[in-house]
Amino acid sequence: MSMTATIPAGTPMAAGANEPRGQRPKPFFTPKKIMLYTVLVFFSLYYLFPLYVMLTTSLKTMPEIRFGNIFALPTAPSFDAWFKAWSSACTGLTCNGLAPGFWNSVKITIPSTIVSIFIAAVNGYALVNWRFKGSEIFFSILIFGSFIPYQVMLYPLVMITRELGIFGSLQAVILIHTIFGMPILTLLFRNYFASLPQELFKAARVDGAGFWRIFFEIMLPMSLPIFVVALILQITGIWNDFLFGVVFAGNVNYPMTVQLNNIVNSAQGTPEYNVNMAATVLTGLVPLTVYFVSGKWFVRGVAAGAVKG
């Protein structure tokens, strides 16, 4: 009865050259693909257009802006507005541009990021691996903290920092950023450490390692992906912050975002759109760079998280 056994090798099962065989053809223009790419292109343009307007306007002169088309390319591109925004635009009383604000932001962002990530990493590690009495309640309270609107806590925090004698200083704004980073970062690290095999921790304990040794020698080297995530969150979050900067930092320490606001909203003279645009792009440059640089690392880091050993 077996038919196949009698057919010589190499004979097609059915006659005709158009019988399906081998890899299925993948035509490029299918309704699905056309639809998909149309939507993608539309939304890309939708989001890129404001950026285009910002960049072209910042490269134009004021007369050109006043008489020209907002979408037109600059006739004679010039970075004058950028230099002015950086070093001589007026932010309230002084006219030193954004540069001081940039350095203030650096001074605020770097320590806040390092301190908050370190404390949160230790928190998360302790909450997962060194359960203590009430650790779950402690964690719940911490998470609850992230649901309370900032405005509610603003006045009490002003009073606390005033009592501590640091209100209106870099320390105050660093302290505030560290505190407000805690809930989300602790959650992040706790979940990451909980996903690492528990037996690794047990093995290290049998090997005699203590709290800090396990943290630094076993846990941290395996935590690069989550550190990258935390870094992105903190750097962009703190850099973009306006509220805490304006309230706690004090006039001389205003971060870049506050300075930008002062430039754009300054009441004297006519608004210099090219300078405003340049200042805005300058302020956004740091978070933008972080996304571009770490985006790749971010994906790579998450993929590397698959190494379980």
């Binding site: 095999p197 037996e199 690794l200 093995a203 290290a204 049998v206 090997d207 395996m222 050993g309």
Partner: peptide, 20 residues
């Protein structure tokens, strides 16, 4: 006593080798 002071060695199902 702490695990290290008990005179024991332990082998785990998931090997639990330090990956780095």
């Amino acid at each position: 006593l702490e695990p290290k002071d008990r005179g024991i060695g332990m082998v785990f199902q998931s090997y639990a080798l330090y990956p780095q």
